[in-house]
Design a protein around this nucleic acid. Structure first.
Length: 550
RNA sequence: AGCGGGAUGGAGGAGCAUGGAGUCCUCGUCGGGCUCAUAACCCGAAGAUCACAGGUUCAAAUCCUGUUCCCGCUACCA
């Protein structure tokens, strides 16, 4: 493991604020980012975990217009909701900002000006569909019509029937999906980021990053291999970050230009509030790690690093791009329009506490390939692993001590070989699970932690303390140390449960990842309580009916 | 269509870079044990042509070629 003091900036993908996120969104970035950030803190690393909402772009401007409100109002609404959900899930953001804040606009303009000065920007004229009635240019997907190849209904970017890629001007009988009027093609001048110029530097950098996951690295190299093209970074919208060039004063930046700069502005906002030096967190030895869904990989391995290079290298390039795959729901995609899946507004109204969700979701984090949410598995994992293994171990030990040792931590006598072996297992658990977590192997790490609890269950069973209650103090003492360690190790995954354990042990602090604070003999313990309620078959049946998604 | 990823006992995963007896993990199933604990815990067993077809090799889940199926991306959705 790492010897020097690490400084790590953890980010989760900035969620777009036009809707309510679903479990897949949570699992793809916020949850793993939170687990990682909490782990880093426990390891004693200098850790900052930032995020925020991505609030610009056409969909928001259009949605606001449909609701008859200003984009600002719509964003306020969804920002509050999203913040509420992430708080509920105990996502421990140090700062959860918004790209609509002035600090973000200022930094984006400054960032752009540097790229501009460094010669990576040029302008060009585009012919784009314009809707007179809506008084706006339309993104390709906002124009629909008949496919020129198969005659079926198609969007302006692609025909879903024959999968041909299209341009909006190819469509027959095109119409604006907002107002159904026929759009016309109008010339408009835009700014472009010259990615082709950045390609050699990007390639060199990507190849160097051997610690990236294979899928992330290959995808990035694939883009380089195909040849990077200049990317348009402005849009004809009103809602967004204004372009600081007089000729383009009626345009705003493309959301994907300004969104990643949100990582910088959110960090700066946090630093200003806490009177810290924000550059410390974005330069020098700081390792920046981005947690994102797989659809986001090109943006974080190509465009964003390209922007950072073009800016002149003020800020560190990402150290790690943790691209996660997708979570499906009962074998199919989450879909808002088909109301299939579980959305976060549903989740907080169901009776399960956050750690129940966090546990199951952690066991199905899509680290290497897409995974599937299933109610049956949800119930089985929670009942058998979380409750049967961990919850039961903690409860059986604390109850036993409460009944037979007057609620005070027993004394340890002479250790036999078995006792010693188990004590050694405690140290091994934090070492092994720590190494796994550091290298982003969340599921393996969690399994290792549960394994410790399993060792505890077996140890208790083998020692049969119930047969000889007076002579069992060493066994119970060892078991208590296991609980202490478990309390620490589960913190990244189950922060609320860790708190509960701490309370039941009547300790103020459980210590760090590597150096736990054990329980001293005669220490008065708290009241043992059941950690989680079992999930009944009836409940699962009911949930399947409500959220079957069939 | 192109590019990238994937297919492993009934379910889900790891293993593949650097070939070495189908090896491991979680769950399920079957049999037994225990009774401190939330019908929880512990032990044992059954169960697999490693997607398919070829090839390289003394040896292939792992390397090569082809095929099928699933997922993502392809730059103006974000």
């Amino acid at each position: 493991m790492v010897k020097f003091k690490e400084r790590i900036l953890v980010t989760a993908a900035l969620p777009y604020v036009n809707n309510v996120p679903h479990l897949g969104n949570l699992v793809g970035s916020h949850l793993p980012a939170d687990i990682y950030a909490r782990f880093c803190r426990l390891k004693g690393y200098d850790t900052l975990f930032i995020g925020g909402t991505d609030e610009h772009g056409t969909p928001i401007e259009v949605a606001a217009k449909k609701e008859g409100v200003l984009p600002r109002v719509l964003c306020d609404k969804y920002y509050k909701l999203q913040k509420k959900y992430y708080d509920w899930f105990a996502v421990s953001y140090d700062n959860f900002s918004r790209t609509s804040k002035p600090i973000h606009h200022d930094i984006t303009k400054e960032f752009f000006s540097k790229i501009y000065k460094n010669g990576y920007i040029f302008d060009d004229v585009l012919k784009l569909p314009y809707c007179k009635k809506c008084e706006r240019f339309l993104p390709d997907r906002f124009v629909e019509g008949e496919c020129p190849y198969c005659g079926q209904g198609a969007r302006g970017d692609q025909c879903d029937h024959c999968t041909k890629l299209l341009n909006p001007d190819e469509l027959i009988n095109p119409y604006c999906i907002i107002c159904n009027n026929k759009p016309e093609i109008v010339e408009t001048k835009h700014l472009f980021l010259d990615l082709s110029k950045l390609s050699p530097k990007l390639k060199k950098w990507i190849i160097k990053n051997k610690h990236w996951k294979v899928n992330v690295r290959n995808l990035a190299l694939g883009w380089i291999k195909e040849g990077l093209k200049p990317r348009c970074i402005t849009r004809d919208l009103k809602w967004g970050v204004g372009v600081p060039i007089p000729e383009f004063k009626n345009k705003v930046f493309y959301v994907w230009f300004d969104a990643p700069i949100g990582y910088i502005s959110s960090t700066k906002e946090w630093a200003e509030r806490n009177k810290k030096d924000f550059k410390k967190w974005l330069t020098g030895s700081t390792k920046i790690i981005h947690f994102i869904g797989k659809d986001n990989i090109p943006f974080h391995t190509i465009f964003w690093p390209g922007m950072l290079i073009a800016e002149g290298g003020t800020y560190n390039l990402p150290w790690q791009v943790a691209g996660l795959e997708y979570l499906n729901f009962e074998g199919r995609k989450f879909s808002k329009s088909k109301s299939r899946g579980i959305f976060l507004n549903n989740v907080i109204d169901l009776e399960f506490e956050p750690d129940i969700w966090r546990y199951y979701l952690s066991t199905i984090l899509p680290e290497t390939s897409d995974t599937d949410f299933s109610w049956d598995e949800f119930q089985a994992r929670v009942n058998n692993e979380l409750i049967g293994n961990l919850g039961n171990f903690v409860n059986r030990i604390l109850t036993f001590i409460n009944k037979n040792f007057n609620g005070k931590a027993p004394k340890s006598d002479k250790y036999d070989l078995y006792d010693k072996k188990v004590l050694k297992n405690i140290d091994e658990a934090s070492r092994i699970s720590g190494e796994l977590l550091y290298t982003l192997r969340f599921r393996d790490s969690l399994r290792e932690i549960l394994h410790l609890s399993s060792i505890g269950n077996k140890y208790f069973q083998d020692k049969k303390p119930w047969e000889n209650k007076e002579k069992s103090s060493t066994t119970l003492y060892v078991c208590l140390q296991i609980i202490c360690k478990l309390g620490v190790l589960i913190t990244p995954y189950l922060p609320n449960t860790s708190e509960k354990i701490k309370k039941q042990l009547n300790l103020k602090d459980l210590g760090s990842w590597d150096k736990g604070i054990g329980v001293k003999p005669s220490h008065k313990l708290g009241k043992p309580e059941i950690l989680f309620k079992r999930i009944e078959d009836k409940k699962i049946k009911e949930l399947k009916e409500n959220f079957g998604g069939k």
